[in-house]
Design a binder for these strands. Structure first.
Lengths: 233, 233
DNA sequence: GTTTGGGTTTGCGTTTCGACAAATATTGAA
DNA sequence: TTCAATATTTGTCGAAACGCAAACCCAAAC
């Protein structure tokens, strides 16, 4: 709670069309906590006791398979809710949530869901809207994995990241948190080796500039062509 | 409406824990229609004017990519709701819905959503639960596509179909609607050729028995081993 | 400054699976 | 019954991408 001080509240963006006073009331029902980079917010299989709003930072949502493979379900950016299994009638979290950078997170006990949605109906509506959008997004990924080649998928992933979290620099659009080749391979269903080869090739062609856990998008248009499946070498 | 006669209502299964009388009131707000095999109920991109309950039959939900590839998102079985884009705040249907066999379908105008959920709160809750389950299911498919080989995915798909819609025969469990090699390839992100080869192999090994648009599961256990990734030839 | 460890690059052999092609089987309609 | 349309099987070939291995590079810690 102590983190919910004036300076933080001042930063809270308009959220789900809830008026400012109501919003503050809503936020005051939440606990807040800082999570340093790489700390786990909740774990796959764990009972879904709370739901969350990310105030600041980036969170990686990861599924782990029985034989240890990891698949990144999505990245959460600040302003988004997450861990809403409870609202969808799920007993347990279906994935791990890990801070990709230092984060500030609000959390409400799941038992408050009913109270909150009754008091702030737009909160419920918008949550369901978010879930609908995520379902569609996930369907898109199924289609992508089922029909596109690795090269296209990696290009799409980088474009999406640049869109979602990109920060303009003088060189181009920098993905605003540390992301490794391994991470990208876990987003796209390939290996870090293949991602590395692709990035090298794209770097040679001047489409991107990349370093250790760092990618800057230079020629978005050209990468978009690759994502769309242009068959030119 | 005319199809909602006594004989049909007699067949309506318990649904979402709504009591029988209320349920009949709810159903009487719906239009009902028969769709013969292969007819389209709604199309991808079309405005999401209604939501639906499948009373009888099987429906294929298909996404079409810009370059004409098809991906089967899911099969809907009788008793399930579908086309609920509206409830999730989507303007348009994100996929095509096509009758896989002759079907009986109830539909409500999207504008009734508010009225209905207010009057029958369990209907809303259970719809969201369904969406939650489908989101999880879709995530599972992403993980599958990202980490498993074609053989495993096809095995999983057949097991799921047998579970969802299987009918016991003296030979084994028959998938209860016509399904082609092409269909299975569109569920698993491969080609009909590969599916054909796999089914042939499995038929030789006595795991399944298959014909034109027809698959019977014989040795579920063994197929489950393949789905799990057993590396024995 | 040096060391250590994680991240990245790159080469090479191998496997999986898609693409193309053609033959064959099955069903429904004429 | 025959024919046409559709579905399935099977073979061959080649490309895409994985697995393994080794080298390299960079950043933070000592």
């Amino acid at each position: 709670m102590s983190l919910l001080d004036a300076s933080l509240i001042a930063d809270v963006p308009p959220f789900y069309g809830i008026e400012r006073e109501k919003l503050i009331a809503l936020l005051s029902m939440a606990g807040s906590e800082r999570y340093e980079k790489d700390r786990t917010i909740f774990s796959q299989g764990e009972e879904a006791h709370s739901f969350f709003l990310l105030l600041d930072g980036h969170i990686r949502v990861v599924r782990v398979t029985p034989d240890g493979d990891q698949v990144i379900a999505r990245y959460i950016s600040s302003g988004e809710i997450f861990g809403i299994a409870h609202a969808m009638g799920l007993e347990n979290y279906p994935a791990n949530a890990v801070a990709a950078v230092d984060c500030v997170v609000l959390s409400w006990s799941g038992s408050l869901w009913k109270t909150i949605t009754e008091k702030y109906p737009t909160f419920a509506t918008n949550t369901y809207k978010t879930v609908g959008a995520r379902l569609q997004d996930t369907q898109d990924r199924v289609v992508e994995l089922a029909t596109e080649r690795v090269e296209q998928r990696v290009a799409t992933a980088i474009l999406k990241l640049a869109n979602q979290t990109g920060r303009k620099t003088e060189e181009g659009i920098l993905i605003d948190f540390p992301i490794s080749r391994q991470d990208i391979s876990e987003m796209t269903g390939t290996t870090l080796h293949t991602v590395s080869r692709l990035l090298s090739a794209w770097e040679n062609a001047g489409l991107v500039k990349s370093g250790r856990k760092k990618i800057t998008l230079i020629e978005g248009h050209k990468l978009a062509l690759i994502a769309a499946g242009d068959h030119n070498k």
